[in-house]
Amino acid sequence: MELDVVVVATGTANLASVLAGLKRSGARPRLARSPAEVLTAPAAVLPGVGALGTAMGKLVRDEMVPALQERIAAGLPTLAVCLGLQLLAEGSEESPGVPGLGVFPGMVTRYPDSVRVPQMGWNKIQADPGCQLLQAGYAYFANSFRLEAAPPGWMAAWCDYAGPFVAALERGPVLACQFHPELSGDFGQALLTRWVERARQGGE
């Protein structure tokens, strides 16, 4: 049976790729219509490209903030992609003064000018031993900002661009990827499929 997934609109595009990737992974995605739906759906996705301040503004206006915070705190199946991962942090250098969802402690910082910014392309990630969903391989990144340290209580996959940074985080069925699984070829497709399978089993 296909898994029903609600996708939270962050006001920024590339939704078509996320929806296409989810469909290929055995999910039936649709856009979330209400905060209640985001809180109770079997699975939810928080995608995002663009600036953190803009996306947070949209989440606040749509009253999605408490629903997302409660959902992730409860360990319900949730996938955050790219900016979605950064939204889970306390904030970002990109949008000073704008609080993130604060699901975990830590600030998102910009890559130094010693490397080309944005990081654009395929980079190799390594998963911490014990990761259930994340595995090693090449993943596609398109980001100017990153999380440098993994928050306590989360398993991480790591990557290197001007030093180590967090490529992805997982805690039970909650998965947050700095890279784009929906654009990461067979590697990303396999990860999405594992997450959909895990989400079918429900929360922690």
């Binding site: 920024t12 595009a13 590339n14 490209v49 663009g50 600036a51 944005p118 654009m120 980001n143 100017s144």
Partner: peptide, 8 residues
């Protein structure tokens, strides 16, 4: 870039 991001 302000609407969709620099990476876009």
């Amino acid at each position: 870039s302000e609407r969709f991001g620099r990476q876009c």
